[in-house]
């Protein structure tokens, strides 16, 4: 479903330039749970950002279900994210002073869904990540684990095909990490493709395939049958 061919990313110009990704070739199938690992500065985050269309490759092609993503305009990439992708970040990235419900509603606003249905879907999404009774809380009133649950609800409420997770457990303790991973694993079991960056082996263990990145190149891939 997802295919990267000879993707490179170079920051800066000429002498001052630094190559972050070198000729990456990667195919991710529908329903896979892929973990990208590697030391800091290896280019794993850049790879994830390119897959999430938040960043664009300097060269190479990105194809999603026979559609060339590299050829899309800024606006079209926005629409691609809106309809196809869901995002979870290490720092949760919830809107401050905005209730959990309103945070989860936000993607639906951009999808043009009417207020009543929006509220219902956002509420249901919060219930599905175990946040009953917390829907009107603002992020500052929630624990880290709860905040990440809100973020997952926000990512999943638009029913994306691919979930992009950038160190989803990076700010959480072991117990919370496992809870979050259970939730993500649950969505993967429903058929949603998950691409996750992590540096924790325990977390990567939830994936069906682990891709190790070093110095901008794929060092090795390990597949697990679960």
């Amino acid at each position: 479903m997802i295919e990267l061919q000879n993707v490179s990313k170079v920051y800066g110009m000429e002498e001052a330039s630094s190559t972050v990704l070198k000729n990456i070739n990667l195919t991710i199938n529908k329903g896979e749970f892929v973990a990208i690992m590697g030391p800091s500065g290896s280019g794993k985050s850049t790879l994830l950002n390119i897959l999430g269309t938040l960043d664009v490759p300097t060269s190479g092609t990105y194809t999603f279900a026979d559609t060339s993503i590299s050829a899309l305009s800024k606006e079209q990439r926005s629409l691609f994210r809106r309809y196809v992708l869901g995002f979870i970040f290490q720092g949760f990235n919830l809107l401050k002073k905005t209730s959990a419900l309103e945070n989860v509603e936000m993607p639906l606003v951009y999808l043009g869904i009417k207020s009543k249905e929006r509220k219902q879907r956002a509420y249901d999404a919060l219930i599905s990540v175990g946040l009953e009774g917390r829907t009107e809380y603002e992020p500052s009133q929630l624990s880290g684990g709860q905040q990440q649950r809100v973020a997952i609800a926000r990512a999943m409420v638009s029913r994306p095909k691919v979930l992009i997770a950038d160190e989803p457990t990076g700010n959480l303790d072991t117990k919370r990490s496992h809870e979050i991973m259970q939730i993500i694993k649950g969505f993967n079991a429903e058929g949603i493709t998950v691409i996750m960056v992590t540096h924790e082996d325990e977390v990567a263990a939830y994936a069906s395939r682990v891709i190790h990145v070093r110095d901008g190149m794929i060092e090795r891939e390990i597949s697990y049958a679960h």
Binding site: L54, K74, E75, S78, R81, R82, F87, N93, M106, Y110
Partner: peptide, 16 residues
């Protein structure tokens, strides 16, 4: 700025 980034990641177009 961060809010703008979040909104864009979620699928807000520049014109939104």
């Amino acid at each position: 700025t961060r809010e703008i980034g979040i909104r864009m990641a979620i699928g807000a177009m520049p014109q939104d």
